[in-house]
Nucleic acid binder design. Structure first.
Lengths: 276, 276
DNA sequence: AAAACGACTTATGTCGACACTCAAGCTACA
DNA sequence: TGTAGCTTGAGTGTCGACATAAGTCGTTTT
């Protein structure tokens, strides 16, 4: 009764469209996606850049990891959902070994929790942890911004224009998804320019963890506008080589984003406690 | 012809003393350790706290991971050494599956590199990467110090005294090993007091990476003295609730440690390039 | 003699199997 | 009806096996 089509294409075909074979166990998993296929592909791509990193060759486990990561980021799997390896191995038509490795990869990125002898599940994200992540990000972006303002070439700084204008465009079109991904692009360029791969790796990992909440944060009233303004001013500060201002701007932007998140989440409090 | 004794005790017996069965392949691996068994045990303990983390139950893979981690940290395995899973599985009398998982754990901590389809090896550590790590650490410790100075209870701050006096004692005794581990203790307490587990995890991971070099850094003339002084002043700053000074001290201490390392390493340059 | 080729050895990635553990459902009992 | 113990089904951790790729070493070629 398996209806699933073969999975895991190498590069650019619509993966992940197959429903889970077994009758859905607990609750929502992979509802029939509609228009946001582009966003999903983008999520998978970002996940690949972060999760796979050195594994340039798209291997079996990195493919699985990216696919599942994208599902988590896109909210197709909610926090706490089971990710048992048997079900996944059926779905991806592999043995459980690669599945386990993929889940371990995602655990290291904080998207999945694997309690010993228990079923892996989509990581819960408590507000407290979100706060910690944003603090860490702010501190490290401070470093990044300072380095960019001081050391990046003017040409390199210019490459920040493209994602920024895409953010502008998306803002005008009220296109939240596009805005989010352009924003991710912007920060990605930023971290690249600082020329510190260690810090970039850490920031990427932290980004991945909170990506699920991005839409939430940016859908707060005026949040898109504020983020856009901050980033535009950041770019200006870079161009003026004003490291202090750049660091302050990026830090402030993070703190505002955090505040916006607190407002959303504190009310719904849907997030269970995280520390198991 | 296997002479190896059973491995992997649960808690406190001298593990890792067994020689590798097969004739040592490339170069040095596990020379017969002499007096530094205590240091080795300490290394394993630290590795457990960081690598295992949630896996409170000492599982098979976490035991293996800690053992190998300690060997790397203690310099019994040099950067670039092979860590092939067959040899390790013989040594630990398990199948290759747990070995692979353990190595993946260590890869996530930056101690091991696993290029696809190639043998895992002890991670190389280029000077550039060390610089990046120390910069990241400095930025995050800035955060930590500020938080401790502002929010930690006076009692909690008092718990920093113990490791500090141990550092003093070790310094007087010219006991480098003890000094290093007391120093690790000191920073560990520090990160605990800041009450930000996310940042603590990141810092722990970064610490683990550079732990191999600690002895090198601190054996530079006057480096122990300088570190001791800095940390004593840091404690005072905490007691005076002087967040700015605390952050500056901890940051400066890191930068000085980095400078000391640069001096050692730049000369020997034994570290091959890291990015593969 | 150095480089290129090829045969052989060794290790990796993946697989299916099995014992053990966990959790959910069921029965017994209050 | 509600709770404790037992049963059973499903999933995890580990194993040994196998196909394939990487490493090794001797031989040939220029």
């Amino acid at each position: 009764m398996l209806a699933a089509k073969p999975i895991l294409l190498g590069s650019a075909s619509p993966i992940g469209e197959l429903p889970i074979d077994t009758p859905v166990k607990r609750q929502t998993a992979a509802p029939p996606r509609t228009k946001d296929q582009r966003s999903f592909a983008r999520a998978r791509e970002v996940a690949r850049a972060i999760v796979a990193e050195r594994h340039d060759r798209p291997s079996l486990v990195s493919n699985i990891a990216c696919e599942v990561a994208a599902e988590i980021i896109e909210g197709q799997r909610s926090p706490g959902d089971d990710l048992n390896s048997v079900e996944l191995s059926r779905r991806f038509r592999t043995s459980r070994t690669p599945i386990r490795e993929a889940l371990m990869l995602l655990e290291k990125e904080g998207l999945v929790q694997i309690p010993p002898r228990r079923r892996p599940r989509v990581a819960l994200l408590a507000m407290e942890e979100v706060r910690e992540i944003y603090q860490a990000r702010a501190a490290l972006f401070d470093l990044i911004a300072t380095a960019v303002a001081r050391n990046a070439s003017t040409d390199d700084i210019g490459t920040l224009r493209a994602p920024l204008s895409e953010m502008e465009r998306a803002f005008r079109d009220h296109d939240l998804n596009t805005f989010v991904w352009a924003n991710v692009d912007f920060y990605d360029r930023n971290t690249q320019l600082a020329n510190n791969r260690t810090v970039k790796r850490i920031l990427d990992s932290l980004l991945l963890r909170t990506l699920r909440l991005r839409r939430l944060s940016l859908s707060q009233p005026d949040r898109m506008q504020a983020s856009l303004d901050d980033n535009a001013r950041l770019l200006k500060a870079y161009e003026n080589r004003d490291a202090t201002l750049a660091a302050a701007l990026i830090s402030s932007n993070h703190m505002n984003a955090l505040a916006a998140l607190e407002k959303c989440l504190h009310s719904q409090e849907a997030q269970l406690t995280s520390r198991t």
